[in-house]
Amino acid sequence: MAAGQPTILATSGGYKQGNRTRVEFNHLMHYAVELSGVTGRSPRVTHLGTASGDQRWWAAEMDQAARIAGFDFSHLNLFTMPNVEDPEAHLMEQDVVWVNGGSVVNLLAVWRAHGLDAILKRVWESGVVLAGVSAGSICWFQGGVTDSFGPDLKPVTNALGFLPYANGVHYDSELRRRPTVHKLVANGTLGEAHCTDDGVGLVYRGTDLAEVVSEAKGKAAYRVTAGAGESVDAIAVEERLEPRFLG
């Protein structure tokens, strides 16, 4: 088992502006590789861009970033058909599976149509590190808050459920995220929610939150739980979780 036990890194980050390219991988992406425990060779990382329709221009940006990082990098595309004959065999050979952002609702529908939901569970249980940003974070949880349906944020409650919590992303940069999470946790639509500011990641060993890490100073993660009160008086309680700065 590559990572020692099933491991997920759920983030609101992972990228930065490049010096000679538009995108480079930031500390959170490199930490996903570190969590895999790979040594003595280039880390094998595959990218799933399903949430944005497997955009080839973005894949090219990721390829450039991967060359700078020294990764043995690949893509698992599902549009217009899977680009590998055996997606499960491909994913099992990786050290890290990184899922990009976009529409988490569309991602879940396409993954289920291709049986990737069950495949990814087996991949996770085998020790391949699962990681990602935004939609690529929410997907591992029971659900979260999404703009997949339009500009008004709505709940998604049928995510993969590998982790028994809800997830909130871009908690500090999109002003409607925090109050929407609070409302949905308070009224019981979402359960306990684990949320990240931009640049912050949550590390899960099995289903336990083991560590909070950050590639940006002054940022944090948050645990949001239902507080006292009934119906319209229901409230949510937010606990700030200080991260370890990755530098």
Rank of each mutant, 00 (worst) to 15 (best):
I8T: 08
A10S: 09
G13D: 00
R22W: 08
Y31N: 04
A32F: 07
R41Y: 11
R41A: 15
P43G: 01
R44W: 04
V45W: 03
A51H: 05
S52E: 01
Q55L: 15
R56W: 08
W57L: 12
A60L: 13
M62G: 00
D63S: 13
Q64Y: 04
A66H: 02
D72G: 10
H75G: 00
M81L: 12
P82V: 07
E88W: 11
E88D: 09
M92N: 03
M92F: 10
Q94G: 05
Q94W: 07
V96Q: 05
V96I: 07
G101H: 00
V104A: 00
A113S: 15
L116N: 02
L116M: 13
D117I: 07
D117L: 07
L120R: 06
K121H: 13
V133G: 06
S134R: 03
C139E: 06
W140P: 00
F141K: 11
Q142K: 14
Q142D: 14
G143A: 05
F149A: 14
G150D: 10
P151N: 14
P151A: 13
L153D: 06
P155T: 08
V156M: 09
F162G: 02
Y165S: 01
Y165A: 03
G168V: 04
V169N: 08
Y171L: 11
S173E: 14
S173P: 04
L175N: 12
P179E: 09
P179V: 07
H182E: 14
L184D: 03
V185F: 09
G188E: 14
G191Q: 06
A193P: 01
D197Y: 01
G201N: 06
D208C: 15
A210S: 12
E215W: 02
K217H: 11
K219A: 09
A220L: 04
Y222A: 09
R223C: 14
V224R: 00
A226S: 12
A226K: 13
G227F: 02
A228W: 03
E230T: 12
E230F: 13
S231G: 10
S231I: 06
S231T: 10
A236S: 11
V237I: 11
V237F: 00
L241V: 05
L246I: 09
G247Q: 11
